[in-house]
């Protein structure tokens, strides 16, 4: 029974840690499916987290913090769009630039405004997205097996976690069952065909990039105002890149993206859980190994040992109308 509870707690932590990955991963999915590579997930998330932390400190309101995070993140994604869609600049270079601008600006502004070494003040619960207890969670708590599963695992997360997981079927529906989604995928595979059909490639890609900014903003707000209580310097700590790895791992598909994020979230949770605890037979698992595992797995995938990841065909290429 104790082992069972341990596992429930582990999975619970997995869900918490996967949520921001999932949001960022889906963000990248919209953008990359439309043919705009986005290395800048990390930066947008970080900027969003800072905006959320700052606004929540000033106004004490979690929804406002979320809105601020989304606005800032979309603004950055528009910079990315302006550079890579309008001016046909290199998408990778633009994304890298956004990561640096976000990393530097959040620290400088954080230090200048809050004087706490780049962090924002600790948020009270009233300014955060607090855990929600689903109906009946308390009542079924003592039911064996199912009770703890419902109480610990499914109930008791912040609204943004539920949002993240609901976005998976929603994204699937948008991409594969709506006209917008069809065009979005088409513009990532063969923009010339979309152009021939009389649809603006630029506008479509801009919309995709805005979707990406929106979700990155939510991911940032989750980090600063739900999982954490305030912004901390470099708080994304590579999550944007892990999300990118998950996106490749999922071969640019929404449901698989969820599995990939859960896997990487689980590895993260396991790493935290196993810290300083020797396993039977294996001995103590080095933390560094656990941290590097998502990247190593992605490399192995890319090397072709676990299927083949084929990116959208027109990804990374600016569209030039033929004349």
């Amino acid at each position: 029974m104790e082992l069972f509870i341990t596992f429930i707690q582990l999975f619970d932590m997995t869900i918490r840690l996967s949520a921001p990955l999932l949001l960022a991963c889906l963000a990248g999915l919209y953008s990359e499916r439309a043919g705009v590579f986005d290395i800048g997930l990390e930066g947008k998330m970080l900027a969003g987290a800072f905006a959320a932390g700052a606004v929540a400190t000033w106004f004490g309101s979690a929804p406002l913090a979320l809105a601020a995070a989304v606005v800032v993140s979309i603004a950055l994604s528009l910079v990315h769009g302006f550079a890579s869609i309008t001016h046909r600049g290199n998408q990778i270079v633009s994304g890298v630039a956004i990561n640096f601008i976000a990393a530097g600006t959040t620290v400088i502004l954080g230090q200048a405004w809050f004087h706490q070494g780049g962090r924002t003040p600790s948020l009270p619960n009233s300014a955060r997205f607090t855990p929600i207890n689903l109906p009946g969670a308390e009542a079924v708590r003592d039911v064996p097996i199912l009770g703890p599963i419902y109480f610990e695992l499914i109930s008791g997360h912040s609204i943004l976690v539920y949002l993240a997981f609901l976005l998976v079927p929603f994204t699937w529906w948008v991409l594969f069952r709506t006209r917008f989604g069809l065009r979005l995928r088409a513009v990532g595979e063969n923009p010339a065909a979309v152009d021939t059909a009389g649809i603006s490639v630029s506008w479509l890609r801009y919309r995709a990039v805005i979707c990406c900014g929106l979700l990155c903003g939510v991911a940032g707000a989750y980090l600063a105002a739900a999982q954490g209580a305030g912004f901390v310097k470099d708080m994304t700590a590579g999550k944007g890149y892990i999300a990118l790895a998950a996106l490749i791992f999922a071969k640019w598909r929404p449901v698989q993206a969820m599995y990939a994020c859960l896997l990487f979230g689980f590895l993260d949770a396991l790493g935290i859980r196993l810290q300083g605890q020797p396993l039977p037979l294996i001995g103590e698992v080095p933390v560094q190994l656990m941290q590097a595992l998502p990247y190593v797995l992605t490399i192995i995938l890319l090397a072709g040992f676990i299927g083949k990841a084929i990116p959208p065909k027109a990804g990374g290429v600016a569209y030039v109308k033929e004349r």
Partner: peptide, 15 residues
């Protein structure tokens, strides 16, 4: 410097 670095990459690279 990180900001300047990012801006240089943006304006001298992507833009």
């Amino acid at each position: 410097i990180v900001i300047i670095q990012g801006l240089v990459i943006l304006f001298a690279g992507a833009l």
